[in-house]
């Protein structure tokens, strides 16, 4: 069991996490503001030479199938739309943070990012289907929901056996076991990181509660979508490690989002039919 001192050490470690580039939060703000002009995002991206080069390489890849070569960010935004460009840029920006192997979670290099990226792409699709209001925010929150694992990884590694025992023998959810052993779980830690990085309170809340620990949270449509995309990715084994399927599934979320009796099968089928598209997008991202 944890001591206050070790919990403090974990929370202090948030400061050792390399902050997400400032442009990320600026782009997130633009994505959430319906009054933002396309040019605003384009100008921001253009100021970052490496990001611009990666973006142009990606949009000129076979995946996007454009007939002519795109030579500027402005052109890319006009041709592909701001949402697509923001998705691509955010996927690229988070890749550098999430790509490393996380031994505590038994995740090889690239797996945490793959889970983040695929679940974010799925969340956008699910959000469009239920005509959610904040689709860009849902995408971003899904992409960053496991950011707490970056800090908690080393502690989970050190206490792996104890956590595993609670999960396997006592049927704990993985995040409950983390909290029992370490005093905090990766979702709560992710919420604190989001606050430290000055994300909006709504974003911090979705990241903090993305495993839906309380039925009262079912009222939050954004959270339900993030949660479902995470569940589908875990069930499909996408970027899942030691925690595997050790989380609680709520049928009520399906009802809340008006999915019928075959709701979960439908969502998985939706993923299956998008899979080659998702694989194409992932392959097209130039991650350097």
């Amino acid at each position: 069991m944890t001591t206050d001192m070790s919990l403090d050490a974990i929370i202090d470690d948030i400061d050792t996490l390399e902050p997400i580039p400032q442009i990320t939060t600026q782009l997130i703000d633009i994505a959430q503001d319906p009054d933002s002009a396309l040019s605003e995002a384009a100008v921001l991206i253009t100021h970052d030479a490496a990001l611009t080069a990666n973006l142009l390489r990606t949009v000129n890849s076979a995946y996007f199938g454009l007939r002519r070569k795109i030579e500027s960010v402005q052109e890319a935004v006009v041709l592909l739309g701001l949402n697509t460009i923001l998705d691509v840029v955010l996927l690229q920006l988070t890749a550098s943070r999430l790509k490393a192997a996380q031994a505590g979670y038994d995740l090889a290099a690239g797996e945490l990012w793959r889970h983040a990226a695929v679940s974010a792409i799925l969340a956008r699709k699910f959000a469009e289907r239920v005509e959610a209001q904040n689709i860009n925010r849902i995408f971003t929150c899904t992409l960053l929901k496991d950011i707490g694992k970056l800090v908690l990884n080393q502690y989970v590694y050190a206490s792996g056996e104890e956590i595993q025992r609670l999960v396997c023998q006592d049927e704990y959810c993985f995040h409950d076991a983390e909290r029992e052993v370490l005093g905090i779980d990766h979702a709560e830690l992710g919420g604190r990181i989001a606050e430290r990085w000055l994300f909006t309170p709504d974003m911090a809340r979705v990241i903090r509660y993305h495993h839906l620990p309380d039925e009262n949270l079912l009222e939050d449509t954004d959270l339900c979508i993030v949660y479902l995309s995470d569940c589908v990715c875990s069930m499909m084994g996408i970027g899942t490690g030691r925690d595997g399927l050790s989380y609680r599934f709520s049928d009520q979320v399906l009802e809340r989002l008006n999915y019928g009796a075959n709701g979960l099968d439908q969502l998985i089928m939706e993923y299956a039919l998008m899979k080659s598209e998702i694989d194409g997008l992932m392959a097209s991202l130039s991650l350097g």
């Binding site: 959810c173 569940c231 989380y247 609680r248 599934f249 049928d251 075959n262 979960l264 099968d265």
Partner: peptide, 14 residues
């Protein structure tokens, strides 16, 4: 054919 906690009936896809 694994399943998450609480997956029973229709939602027990695994």
């Amino acid at each position: 054919g694994g399943q998450m906690l609480g997956q029973t009936g229709r939602s027990n896809v695994g």
